[in-house]
Amino acid sequence: AAQTPAPATAPQTPAPTATAAENAPTAPATGNDGIQPEQHKVIIIATEECWIRSNADKTDVRQFSLNKGDTFALTFSHRLELKLGNAGGVRIRYDGKEMPPAGTSGQVLNLVFPPEN
């Protein structure tokens, strides 16, 4: 005897959304020795328009512009190189600490993190 499927009257559970999956914690990558590299964070807050080129760990190169009020965060393990097209037009926080002004308005400047002594 053939069975007819029962109509779906029970409420359906929605499938997980991509947002939930994107927000799930992920394990950081480990080096060849199995030790997790320390992650550093640089936050750039634009006080004026500024063009920026970043190179994080020699693998993640980006070029972008920030407008006044924009904020951009970059993470890296070993080295971050920044070229600022308007060094006086940004505030920079490195690992949660406010950095001194990088330069003057309109100045093109290269920065390296961690800062070299």
Rank of each mutant, 00 (worst) to 15 (best):
A1L: 08
A2N: 08
A2T: 01
Q3E: 14
T4N: 14
T4D: 15
P5W: 03
A6V: 14
P7G: 04
T9L: 15
Q12C: 13
T13E: 15
P14N: 07
P14A: 08
A15C: 13
A15I: 08
A15Y: 12
A15L: 15
P16F: 01
P16R: 09
T17H: 06
T19K: 10
A20H: 05
A21S: 15
A21P: 14
A21V: 13
E22S: 10
E22H: 09
N23T: 08
P25D: 10
T26P: 03
P28Y: 03
A29G: 10
G31K: 05
N32H: 13
D33S: 04
G34R: 02
G34L: 08
I35Q: 15
I35W: 10
Q36Y: 10
P37Q: 05
P37C: 04
P37R: 03
E38Y: 07
Q39N: 11
Q39G: 06
Q39A: 14
K41V: 11
I43L: 11
I44W: 00
I45P: 00
I45Q: 10
A46M: 06
A46P: 05
E48L: 00
E49I: 01
E49F: 03
E49S: 09
E49V: 01
C50I: 04
W51H: 06
W51F: 09
W51C: 01
N55C: 13
A56L: 03
A56F: 02
A56M: 02
D57Q: 06
K58F: 11
T59F: 13
T59R: 11
T59A: 12
D60Q: 01
V61E: 15
V61L: 12
V61M: 13
V61S: 11
F64N: 06
N67W: 03
N67L: 14
N67M: 14
T71Y: 12
T71P: 07
F72K: 02
F72D: 05
F72E: 14
F72P: 01
F72Q: 12
F72M: 12
A73T: 11
A73R: 04
L74Q: 01
T75V: 10
T75W: 03
T75D: 15
F76Y: 06
S77P: 13
R79F: 07
L80T: 06
E81Q: 09
K83C: 03
L84W: 00
L84M: 00
L84E: 03
A87S: 08
G88F: 04
G88P: 02
G88N: 01
G88W: 01
G89K: 05
G89S: 09
G89Y: 05
G89D: 09
R91D: 15
R93F: 10
R93K: 03
R93V: 04
R93C: 06
Y94Q: 01
G96W: 07
G96V: 07
K97F: 08
M99P: 05
P100G: 02
T104C: 05
T104F: 11
G106Q: 01
G106A: 09
G106S: 08
G106M: 02
G106L: 07
Q107K: 05
Q107C: 01
V108M: 09
V108C: 08
V108W: 10
L109P: 02
L109Y: 03
N110W: 11
N110P: 00
L111Y: 02
V112Y: 11
V112M: 12
F113Q: 07
P114H: 02
P114V: 00
E116G: 04
